[in-house]
C-alpha cells in the first residue's frame, strides 16, 4: 500500500539503499568527469564496467581475495581505457560511435567469459558491512550512513579528492585547459595527448571499479548485461552535474534514491507495474538533461580531436 512508503522503517530502508546504490554511479561518473573535462567523451563506460564487474567477480570467486579482485578490475578497465585513448587521441576517431564499439565489445566479451569460465549464476562473498562504532548505533542515521561497506565509503571519499585534484592542483589545471583550449595549452608546453591519455585511462580504471562495486560489493553476483544502462546514465550524470564532482554527487544521489524507491515499490507490492517503475531512472535522465543543458556550458573542446599544427 502507498501508506507503507511513509513508515520510518521503510524510509530508512530507502535512504540506506539509496546511499549504497549511488556507489557505481559515483565511480563511473567521477572517472567520466575527468575524461570530459579534458575534452574526451568516453561512451565505453558501460562496456568497461561490465568487464570490470566480471573480472572482479571471477577473482573474488576463485581466490576469495577482494582487494585483488578490485585491483584486477582496475587493470581491466585501464586496458580498455588505453585502447580507447589510442583510438580517440592518436586516430582522432568519432568519439560517440567508437564508444558504442567499446560498449558492444565489453558486452559481448563479458558474456563470452561468463559462459566459458562460470556458466551459471553464482554468488560470492562480497565486501562486508562495516559498522562504524558508536555512530552506527544512532537510530535511523546509523543504518543510513554508518553501516555500509568499504567500497561505498571509498566512492564518497572520491568526490572531495576529485574536486581537489581538478581545482587545486597543477594536474587539474592542465586537464581543464586541455578541455577548454587545447591549442593554448599546447603552446604553453602541456602535452594534450599525454593529459588525455591520463584522463581516459583514469576513467577506464574507475569504470572498472564501478563494475566491481556492483559484482562484489552491492549485488554479489555476475549476470550478462548486469549494468543495464548504468554506465550510460553515469555519462549523463556528468552533464547533469555540470562537469563538477559535487554536482555529480548530487546527481548520483538523486538517481540512486529514485532507483531505491523503485525497488521498494516492488518489494512492498504497491500496484505500480514493475516495468513502468523500471523506466523511472531512464525517463529521469532525459528530463534531467533537458533541465541541465541550458544551465551550464560544457568543456569547449569536448569531443573535438586535437590536431597540432607545426
Amino acid at each position: 500500500m502507498i501508506s507503507d512508503l511513509f513508515s520510518v522503517t521503510v524510509l530508512v530502508g530507502i535512504l540506506a539503499s539509496g546511499i549504497r546504490l549511488a556507489t557505481p554511479y559515483l565511480y563511473a561518473a567521477i572517472g567520466e568527469t575527468f575524461a570530459q573535462r579534458s575534452g574526451v567523451l568516453n561512451l565505453g563506460v558501460e562496456g568497461q564496467m561490465l568487464l570490470g564487474a566480471f573480472a572482479a567477480f571471477y577473482v573474488a570467486l576463485t581466490t576469495g581475495n577482494l582487494g585483488l579482485a578490485v585491483l584486477v578490475a582496475m587493470l581491466v578497465g585501464a586496458i580498455m581505457g588505453l585502447a580507447m585513448a589510442f583510438v580517440t587521441v592518436n586516430l582522432h576517431a568519432q568519439q560517440g560511435i567508437s564508444g558504442i564499439g567499446f560498449y558492444l565489445f565489453g558486452l559481448g566479451m563479458s558474456d563470452l567469459l561468463f559462459q566459458k569460465m562460470l556458466g551459471t549464476v553464482e554468488t560470492v562473498r562480497g565486501f562486508p558491512r562495516i559498522h562504524i562504532p558508536v555512530l552506527s548505533d544512532i537510530p535511523g542515521l546509523g543504518q543510513i550512513f554508518f553501516s555500509q561497506n568499504l567500497m561505498v565509503y571509498a566512492a564518497y571519499l572520491l568526490v572531495p579528492i576529485a574536486w581537489f585534484v581538478l581545482n587545486k592542483t597543477t594536474l587539474g589545471l592542465k586537464i581543464r585547459s586541455v578541455g577548454e583550449n587545447p591549442e593554448a595549452a599546447d603552446s604553453l608546453g602541456v602535452s594534450v595527448a599525454g593529459v588525455r591519455y591520463f584522463t581516459i585511462v583514469l576513467g577506464g580504471t574507475l569504470s572498472g571499479v564501478a563494475g566491481a562495486s556492483l559484482s562484489i560489493a552491492l549485488l554479489n553476483v555476475f549476470q550478462q548485461n548486469m549494468t543495464s544502462g548504468l554506465g550510460f546514465i553515469a555519462v549523463a550524470l556528468v552533464y547533469f552535474g555540470g562537469w563538477r564532482p559535487w554536482g555529480v554527487l548530487g546527481g548520483a544521489l538523486l538517481f540512486s534514491m529514485v532507483n531505491s524507491l523503485q525497488l521498494w515499490i516492488q518489494v512492498l507490492g504497491i500496484p505500480i507495474p514493475s516495468d513502468i517503475a523500471v523506466m523511472m531512472p531512464y525517463v529521469l535522465t532525459i528530463l534531467v538533461l533537458v533541465a541541465s543543458v541550458s544551465r551550464v556550458r560544457g568543456p569547449s573542446a569536448l569531443t573535438k580531436p586535437f590536431e597540432r599544427e607545426d
Binding site: 564499439g101 558492444l104 566479451m109 563470452l112
Partner: peptide, 10 residues
C-alpha cells in the same frame, strides 16, 4: 559461447 558475435561486432 554466445558473446562472440557482439564482441566481434564491437
Amino acid at each position: 559461447p554466445s558473446g562472440v558475435p557482439k564482441m566481434i561486432q564491437g
